[in-house]
Design a protein around this nucleic acid. Structure first.
Length: 603
RNA sequence: GCACCCAUAGCUCAGGUGGACAGAGCAGCGGCCUUCUAAGCCGCAGGUCGUUGGUUCGAGUCCAACUGGGUGCACCA
């Protein structure tokens, strides 16, 4: 369809010199495949939009000269409409060729995506799902569209919070539970699967904050430990590394379930610690470093409209996250020479990111336009904000477990003979959770409710996965080479974002796809590439998720109204419909893959 | 107090650069398993797009004010 779009665009440009040609996709496939709204052209010519549309239709129909394509003036719109068989040929050709549908050639641009970035010694909550999956979606979409992508996880493995952990460990665990392998008194009611060293570390952290309220002096203890850490105390460093290892082991388990990975985990906050001196020196050299209240070092950004000064060093001389972020941006330019660096970080840090970006642009104009903060809305509970410290949180792993368990129960009920039940349950459970995240505008806050996040029918991941499984079932029954046509070969798809399918001939006779349900499905399939482009522009996968729903929904219509394997089907009808099934399965699998979801062949 | 974000059907949400009658799902009601998986399909019902102005040939979409909710505002990240 991109080919036709280009021809259409050139023809319009030739007739409307000097005008911006904006070709859109009609909301409804029955109107046409592409449309040119004539409002602007009408303004330029002084005629009414409807008149312009009519004139263009008569003039361009000859010029286009593509078989099966008609231009129809519909009021102020000039609609390009393919005849059913031409539409089928066009869409199937694109999906069956074996080239990734809608993918772009390498464009030589390098994009860094920073995402997930959990804090060490805390458990993943449902909130972490947002950054992790939005980032992963951006990684996949950018790769698909030809960018080189660097995947970074800015681990929160430094800072005062580490002082807190060290102080708490020293106070309550070092003598009684030095290796964090057995329960504390106050943890007796914790479920078995939770009794990990990381959870015990987390409990120490929570306890510290509880007791700190009674004893404000403890705060000083934590600060002192962080200073020790920064000054290279062997003891503090040893514990730091151990806490970090404990955390990464558990994070990895979650990343594996979500299908997310990174190019390195070595560039967390601590990584930049040795560079902090140079950063402060540079700020000072540029005359940006000022003395703030209580001996703190600050950068004043009021001249660029940011009234809150940025603290880059604390009054006690210890570092702070702002300086680590400045070091991080500086380092990334040197190490990667990126075209764009995207930060998937919650909306509550908008001010902080603005400060960092503004400061870096002052230091080096090279950064102008290259730094992007991609904020997202908080996950809240119906009763209010989640707080790790207060303990009213939803742990991500509980959500993932619950999702898989609910699916398993449904499999027991609906398809008890299914093979690989636990694997399929996992695939669908993750599909539900991940799709829910992708489906909604990232900027809007989410109120967490179990039944919505892990819903399994309606507009959900499993609905899309179900459409895919049904297609595979039909292809299996068709036999021959059909099932293989919808099955990707061996591939390390995580590194490419492309799902490789074998090339497949488009049947020569496509009359079997004349039915409106088949045509509607073709129209939705044609919409996938632009949905991927929109996803990149908007920096979220919402458009892809919605398009997959539209494809799955129209497939269901096709499936119920157009028998594929019926005995009385003419061979060419059967052939054409099977080809459409293959094309749909490929589009669904590729699209789901961009969102980070796997497509089951049976469920 | 100041700044930023959000407000669309009973509920949860879609509505790329303003444009064809505002679309889904859930919940509700009514149909459909002797044909390829009913995690599905079809139908009904449900909306003065928070309010009031403004820009425009045209506003859910842009601007202003207001209302309600969220977030942030120097030594946490």
């Amino acid at each position: 369809m991109d080919r036709i779009r280009k021809v259409f665009e050139h023809a319009l440009a030739a007739h409307l010199p000097g005008q911006d040609i904006v070709i859109e996709r009609p909301k409804n496939g029955s109107l046409g495949d592409l449309t040119f709204p004539c409002f602007h052209a009408a303004k330029a010519s002084g005629n009414s939009p409807a008149q312009v549309a009519t004139e263009l239709a008569s003039q361009l129909n000859l010029a286009l000269a593509i078989e099966g394509v008609k231009l129809i003036a519909a009021g102020p719109y000039l609609n390009l409409k393919l005849q059913p068989e031409a539409r089928a040929g066009e869409v199937l050709g694109g999906l069956l060729s074996g080239k990734p549908y809608g993918a772009h050639e390498k464009n030589g641009q390098k994009v860094i995506v920073e995402y997930s970035s959990p804090n060490i010694a805390k458990l993943f909550t449902i909130g972490h799902l947002r950054s992790t999956m939005i980032g992963h979606n951006l990684v996949q979409v950018h790769r698909f569209l030809g960018y080189d992508v660097v995947r970074l996880n800015h681990l929160g493995d430094w800072g005062t919070q580490f002082g807190t952990l060290l102080a708490a460990y020293k106070a309550w665990a070092e003598t009684s539970n030095p290796d964090l392998t057995h329960d504390f008194d106050w943890a007796a009611e914790i479920p078995e699967k939770r009794r990990t060293p990381l959870f015990r570390l987390f409990q120490l952290y929570v306890r510290f904050h509880d007791e700190e309220k009674e004893n404000p002096d403890m705060r000083e203890d934590a600060r002192r430990w962080f200073r020790e850490l920064e000054q290279g105390s062997v003891e503090a460093r040893r514990l730091w590394k151990w806490f970090r290892d404990i955390s990464l082991t558990e994070f990895q388990r979650i990343y594996d379930r979500l299908g997310v990975s990174f190019d390195t985990l070595e560039q967390g906050e601590a990584f930049y610690e040795p560079m902090l001196g140079a950063v402060l020196q540079r700020l000072s050299d540029h005359g940006l470093l000022k003395e703030g209240e209580g001996g703190a070092k600050i950068v004043d950004l009021s001249d660029v409209g940011i009234e809150t000064p940025m603290v880059v060093q604390k009054g006690d001389g210890a570092s702070i996250y702002a300086s680590r972020d400045l070091a991080q941006v500086t380092y990334r330019k040197e190490a990667y020479l990126f075209d764009r660096c995207i930060y998937v970080i919650g909306g509550e840090q908008i001010l902080h990111m603005k400060q960092i970006f503004a400061c870096m642009e002052k230091l080096d104009p090279w950064f102008k336009g290259r730094l992007t903060h991609t904020p997202f809305g908080l996950v809240r509970l119906p009763e209010g904000k989640m707080s790790t410290r207060k303990g009213n949180v939803i742990f991500l792993e509980d959500v993932l477990d619950e999702a898989a368990e609910r699916v398993a129960a449904i499999i027991q009920e609906k398809n008890p003979d299914l093979a690989n039940q636990s694997a399929v349950a996992e695939m669908l459970g993750m599909g539900a959770v991940i799709f829910f995240n992708a489906m909604n505008d990232r900027i809007k806050p989410i109120t967490f409710e179990w039944d919505r996040v892990i819903a399994l029918d309606g507009d959900t991941g499993p609905y899309v996965q179900y459409a895919h499984a049904r297609i595979c079932s039909v292809l299996r029954k068709a036999g021959g080479a059909w099932p293989a046509m919808a099955t990707p070969g061996l591939h390390d798809s995580r590194e490419t974002a492309m799902v490789p399918f074998p090339p497949c001939d488009t049947p020569s006779d496509l009359k079997g796809l004349d039915a409106p349900e088949a045509q509607n499905l073709l129209f939705e399939l044609a919409g996938l590439p632009s949905a991927v482009r929109v996803a990149r522009e908007q920096l979220m996968a919402t458009s892809i998720a919605r398009q997959l729903l539209a494809i799955a929904r129209s497939f269901s219509g096709f499936y119920t109204n157009c028998p594929i394997l019926a005995a009385d089907n003419a061979p060419e009808v059967r052939e054409a419909r099977l080809a459409l099934c293959v094309a749909t399965a490929r589009a669904l699998r590729q699209g789901l893959f961009l969102i980070g979801i796997e497509a089951p062949e049976e469920m």
